[in-house]
Write a protein that binds this DNA or RNA. Structure first.
Lengths: 112, 112
DNA sequence: AATCTTCATAAAGATAATCTATGCATTCGG
DNA sequence: CCGAATGCATAGATTATCTTTATGAAGATT
């Protein structure tokens, strides 16, 4: 049985989507591309993870979507960060850094 | 509907358990205490997360367990890191740091 | 014409976590 | 001495999130 691939650190995808949208509205596919590229190919966002995450963000009101026609003349659904989403992003960053500090203390060999 | 509590960053518990056991064998309860304390109360390991995680580590052979009698005169199941577990820990640390770097690149505003 | 890339959705399966419950033994406060 | 809290362990139901796989369709490339 082949090992499962691990593209993401669970629990960080929504935060990264919101952060990506801070720099401007994008459609789903472009979000995935952006994350992959800025992470220098370390992170890969599968479509089966991305679109459900976007649905959650929509449901919560962190983003809004509308259909547009892309430069390539295709129907694309564009997602835009809301003011509430921006607040949420800050909360998520704070929580994430808090957890990272906790993990750091556990993982780092004692430092005086 | 009250929000769910979030005690851990998913995907990091096994790594932290293994790391905790590097300093010596411990029973389950003590592992949870140790993680909570060294994290300075940032991380809290629920029993419902801890014991299943220990079962997985046993199954994979990263730890071995045996029943002992504690200083408080109680039956405790003590877990000890195996050589394979030590290797696994190194792999997990490497993978975790890799992901963190990827996330860092996505989250950090452009730095020249 | 075939295939690749772009873009989107959905459903099934896995994994890992939380929540809740149970149980028992010891220790501690009153 | 009795009840409560703590120490220690296990197990089941539920939820969240991610991967995998499938499907589809429009446009671009060959």
């Amino acid at each position: 049985m082949p090992k499962r691939k691990k593209d993401l650190l669970p629990g960080t995808l929504e935060m990264m989507i919101l952060q990506t949208l801070r720099r401007g509205a994008l459609h789903g596919y472009a979000i995935a591309q952006d994350i992959q590229q800025t992470s220098q190919d370390v992170l890969q966002v599968e479509e089966g993870s991305l679109y459900p995450a976007l649905q959650r963000l929509l449901r919560e009101g962190w983003v809004v979507a509308n259909w547009e026609v892309s430069a390539r003349n295709r129907q694309v659904r564009t997602y835009k960060l809301t003011a509430a989403g921006r607040k949420q992003l800050e909360r998520e960053i704070a929580g994430f850094e808090r957890l990272l500090e906790g993990i750091g203390r556990v993982m780092r060999p004692v430092e005086s």
